Amino acid sequence: MAKFTENEKEQIRQCLLNKGKELFIKYGLDKTSIDDLVQACGIAKGSFYKFFSSKEELFYVIIQQQEEIKNRLIGEHMQEKLPPKELISSFLHMAFAMADENPLLQQWFKEGVAERVKRKLPKHLVRDFSQDHTQDGIAFVEALIQRDVFKEQSPEVINGVLHAIMLLRLHKEEIGAELFPKVMSVIIDYIAEGLTKS
């Protein structure tokens, strides 16, 4: 197997992330093979495994990058000077819109995909991301508590509520694609009103 310099390793990793994103968007996770990925980057199939344990791990890392971009945009949005209820309502609507507009996140939210991907990942990767995600969410909530956006309550509970709302996206097909936005709009309004200071 070829030896790569640190610079080459970084270039190959970036190529796999970039080409992986393109191929996953174009063909989907199921129809994209490791052969497709290595061919796109001009590396041997065996070299792929120096970077990722499976195509599912590559997909997961790309999804996390999408989450980071989404979180940055939402963080910028949260700096706006809106009344608390409108701020949380607009935050949740924006988060749902971003998930609906992103073809990779759409795949992630298809029934069974997230669970199947996570089963194929190294356990430490899922654990570490889950811990980081929770810590980031709690820090985000604590910052909003400091701004008097939320009623005094446990940041862990508020973060859990916000996370639970986003997980409802997994049930879009069951609720019905046309009905789902209307249902979510009602839920978001009630949650925003219940969590925030008037």
Rank of each mutant, 00 (worst) to 15 (best):
M1W: 03
K3M: 07
F4I: 06
N7H: 07
E8F: 00
K9P: 12
K9W: 01
I12V: 14
I12Y: 10
R13T: 08
R13W: 01
Q14P: 02
L16C: 06
G20V: 09
G20A: 07
E22R: 05
E22P: 08
L23I: 08
F24M: 07
F24E: 10
I25G: 01
I25R: 06
I25T: 14
K26S: 13
L29Q: 03
L29N: 02
D30I: 06
T32D: 09
D35W: 06
D36R: 07
D36L: 04
D36G: 09
D36N: 14
L37G: 11
V38H: 02
Q39D: 14
A40W: 08
C41P: 13
G42A: 11
A44Q: 14
A44T: 11
A44M: 05
G46T: 13
G46I: 02
S47R: 07
F48T: 08
F51Q: 07
F52S: 11
F52W: 05
S54W: 04
E56M: 04
E56V: 02
E57D: 10
L58M: 11
V61N: 05
E67A: 03
E68V: 00
I69E: 14
R72Q: 14
E76I: 11
Q79R: 15
Q79G: 15
P84A: 05
P84Y: 02
E86L: 14
I88T: 07
I88L: 11
S89H: 12
F91H: 13
L92I: 11
L92V: 05
L92M: 15
H93D: 13
H93A: 00
M94P: 01
A95V: 00
A95T: 10
F96D: 04
A97I: 04
A97L: 13
E101V: 01
E101K: 13
E101H: 09
L105H: 05
Q106R: 15
Q107I: 09
Q107Y: 05
Q107H: 09
K110Q: 15
K110T: 10
A114W: 00
E115G: 04
V117Y: 02
K118Y: 00
R119T: 06
R119F: 03
K120D: 06
L121I: 10
P122C: 02
P122M: 06
Q131P: 02
T134N: 10
G137R: 09
I138R: 08
A139K: 13
A139Y: 00
F140P: 12
V141W: 06
V141M: 09
E142M: 10
L144V: 06
L144P: 07
V149G: 03
V149Q: 10
K151P: 06
E152C: 00
E152W: 00
Q153K: 12
S154M: 01
S154K: 09
V157W: 08
V157T: 13
V161F: 03
H163N: 11
H163K: 13
L167W: 05
L168Q: 11
R169Q: 14
L170Y: 13
H171C: 04
K172R: 15
E174I: 05
I175R: 01
F180A: 07
P181F: 04
V183Y: 12
V183T: 12
V183Q: 07
M184I: 05
I187L: 15
D189N: 13
Y190T: 02
I191C: 11
I191D: 01
E193S: 12
L195I: 04
T196F: 03
T196W: 04
S198C: 02
